[in-house]
Amino acid sequence: MHYVSQILPSLISGTGMTLSIFFWTIIIAIPLGILVGLGMTTNFKPLTWLINIYVWLMRGTPLLLQLIFVFYGLPIIGVVFQRYDAALFAFILNYTAYFAEIFRGGLQAIPEGQYESARVLRLTNWQTLRKIVIPQVVKIVLPSIGNEVINLVKDSSLVYVIGLGDLLRAGNVAMARDVTLIPMLLVGVIYLLLTAVCTLVLKRMEKHYSYWR
């Protein structure tokens, strides 16, 4: 017990890094994902072509590799990021692609007739999107978004590769120093707590949207 209270502060500060990557990625990548997903459903070929390549790159290569490229590779062409900014940039780039793909699917699930009935009621495109399309899409995509959110909690541990001190790394340091698995056990418990909170929040959101079908 004494040992636990000894290492807890470093684990908690590692958790802070994990959470910070997590929140900023969610806050930025979800709206971007909506925009990119909308872009994928347009008929403007150069745009959809460009987005498809981007999504293919992001989903076709490991996030770990993308982190390494952003932090060690981009400086070669003169783009230098701080460690934290590099991590965030790579995570946002990666998760936007996944979210975009999910939103594209959700957008394409809305029948053409919904747009047409909005059109004959003479709602503008923006009004149609805001009042009719987005609420329906959110309901459709919520379970898939939830999966990605849970993945993100765990994926955030990849930032160790560019030398950031997150939760997993804090546990790793303590384990190597004290030659015991206890820190890793604690790390596991903290991850479980984080994903449990996410799951709860997502369940509540799904419930919130269950008043219509």
């Binding site: 009935s117 009621l121 003479r122 709602l123 009004q127 009719i132 079908r213």
Partner: peptide
Amino acid sequence: DYQLFPNLTVRQNVTLAPTMV
């Protein structure tokens, strides 16, 4: 096939365009 808006109540379906447009 009517194409009512499933996320809105009957009243909201009816009032959406009159209020917004």
